[in-house]
Design a protein around this nucleic acid. Structure first.
Lengths: 357, 357
DNA sequence: CCCTCGGTTGGTATCGCTACCATGTGCCCG
DNA sequence: CGGGCACATGGTAGCGATACCAACCGAGGG
């Protein structure tokens, strides 16, 4: 038998259980459990004793057992769509990390944006015993998917939706504020003739960014009207927009694209026209996706703490699911959490040539 | 009691347990367990019946219960280093998917390449009860990390190491063959003056790709000696290499960079010199990373089925761990699995201007 | 013909923890 | 003064799966 082998290996392994702590503290396992889980009906002296024992013995609860007993081995789903978003990598890291911390399982499911595909994906999730779902962009914008999920009684957290949907929890940065900040940055550099490439019209974040841009322009005042083109968050659409923006005089001295892919496209088109970035043209983006640091010159952009956001989303889901099971039925508190963004200045933005410092 | 209420509501909710499957298949839970875990003492008819039931009911074992009962910390680790590799995203998707399929938990751990950091990361993994680790590049090349892991008796699968390490399982594409294929492709287009940007010298894949390139050049024969520069897989290093390659006459008509980031850098530098790609210069890369399709012109490159490779790695780990525990001690079969690559032709490669078709 | 033996099954205990109920205090209120 | 209520605690019964052993069964050897 290989039992002896196991024994030998484990030696150091065997962990201290709740019973050990209970015995050590001279109370029942139940009391220990209550203390550890922040239960309410424990007297303060007892609590201190137990906490002491926990520290002394280095007790750490067995996740598997806890999950099993509390039937909280909940699975969470992560529905992802367009994987071109270099988002996904960081997003997954953050989400998985949080999931591991909470001891919940994370199930991935790919999903196109068509109703049929959504339905299929949701069905697969339900079949997999998933009780809550994280929705990264652009799926978080799809009312169809949200409705489908809601019908299956899933909890939902939308990540990085520009405007929080009314029917789901949400974690995002303040797209409006971030765009305003970036625009102010451009204005502070001395730019006057601005160009803007809008994002995909069916993502609410696009609006927020656009409005932030407009707000900054208006509060500054006295500028020639900015040139605006519609984009769709793809490199290709950025190229088209850039072509139009750069074709007609007077050419903008700074172009703010609603995401990095489009900003990269603007830079590519600028190069084609032998405009040097940033000396002849300043280009800034949004997202701080992988491409931002991997092109030359590096792209000045807005950094979103994607991993953190994904993690928070999972946290929210876990508390919602657990609290929901515990607390009275359906008391759906729809939290909306904002996290901090950051303007990352790289090489693609500079004072305009004609700046009147 | 709210039990009835739960029952009523649950219908779709309540996950199916091993007992349900057993009842459905008309056998005991034990037998189901044996089938699911690939146990040996099950007759074929019984096995089929059970598998059928599993599929019908959509059964998926409860991780918590399994871990608790078997005390088998069946967690797998994924040690990732340099996340600049846009690799990570797809890699995670594949790995997580496989992990979910097998019902094992995947624990992520970030790890720098220094010995100290490796030691710390491994310690964290051990503390987390991890029994096997997936090593994506570039970590799979680090003998230090492998040694560290092996000392902790972990199973290891290295992914995309150019040359399989002697002491670990491995899944990769045939870098040599892929590079040779790409080079033949360039030669077939009519290119004669070739440039090559080598990859980071401490990754064995770099060698393989370089040798594949050389092999194709030699088997073709009668070419001027190719121009070669050392790169380090970073955009920056690609820029430096491109500068040198394009500075001295005669300029190559095609440049093969050992990865996409460097290829993108070559393209950027070409643009700066007002060389049009692909008309004035053909550029090809390797990896088919996100950037390849998101620049203009699109990069002709070698596609690696990253997600699939990651999935296979997890599969191998699972069978190794389960088989290893069961089967006689230490019969470490070090499998090395090759998966198919694919040459993806986009717009960055064309016949040279001076081609003598 | 019985007994052993290897392949195949089912029963039972148990993993570590928590839900749930019972119990036991002290205290206020009717 | 007894019932009720808010706290504080302990006991018991599982959660879903596997380990381990017992039981069965057909075949072959003594």
């Amino acid at each position: 038998m290989n039992k002896p082998a196991r024994k030998a290996r484990s030696g150091a392994r065997r962990s201290v259980t709740i019973k050990d702590v209970a015995r050590y503290a001279g109370v029942s396992p139940m009391t220990v459990s209550r203390v550890v889980n922040g239960g309410q009906y424990v007297s303060d002296p007892t609590r201190q004793t137990v906490l002491q024992a926990v520290r002394q013995l280095g007790y750490s609860p067995n996740l598997a057992a806890r999950n099993l007993a509390s039937a909280r081995g909940e699975r969470l789903g992560l529905l992802y769509g367009n994987p071109s978003a270099s988002y996904l990598s960081e997003f997954l890291v953050g989400a998985l990390d949080a999931a591991t911390r909470h001891g919940v399982q994370l199930v991935l499911e790919k999903c196109e944006l068509t109703p049929a595909a959504s339905r299929r994906a949701v069905r697969r999730l339900v079949a997999g015993g998933v009780v809550g779902v994280v929705l990264p962009p652009p799926l978080c914008e799809s009312a169809v998917i949200r409705a489908e999920l809601q019908a299956a009684r899933m909890r939902i957290v939308a990540v990085a939706a520009g405007r929080p949907p009314a029917d789901a929890m949400c974690v995002s940065i303040d797209d409006f504020e971030a765009a305003r900040e970036m625009t102010r940055y451009l204005l502070a550099l001395g730019h006057q003739r601005l160009g803007f490439v809008k994002g995909h019209p069916n993502q609410t974040a696009s609006d927020q960014r656009w409005h932030g841009f407009v707000a900054a322009v208006q509060e500054h005042g006295g500028l020639p009207p900015p040139r605006v083109e519609q984009g769709f968050f793809t490199f290709r659409s950025g190229l088209d927009a850039a072509r139009k923006l750069l074709a007609t005089e007077p050419v903008p001295t700074a172009i703010f694209a609603s995401n990095d892919d489009m900003a990269a496209a603007v830079m590519a088109e600028a190069h084609r026209r032998v405009l040097e970035v940033p000396n002849d043209l300043t280009v800034v983006g949004f997202d701080d996706s992988l491409i931002a640091a991997n092109i030359w010159p590096g792209l000045t952009t807005i950094h979103q703490p994607i991993a953190q956001m994904a993690g928070e989303a999972v946290d929210m889901l876990v508390t919602a699911v657990r609290g929901g099971r515990r607390g009275g039925g359906g008391g759906a508190e729809l939290v909306h959490r904002l996290v901090a963004h950051e303007l990352v200045a790289r090489e693609s933005a500079a004072r305009p040539r004609t700046a009147t410092a």
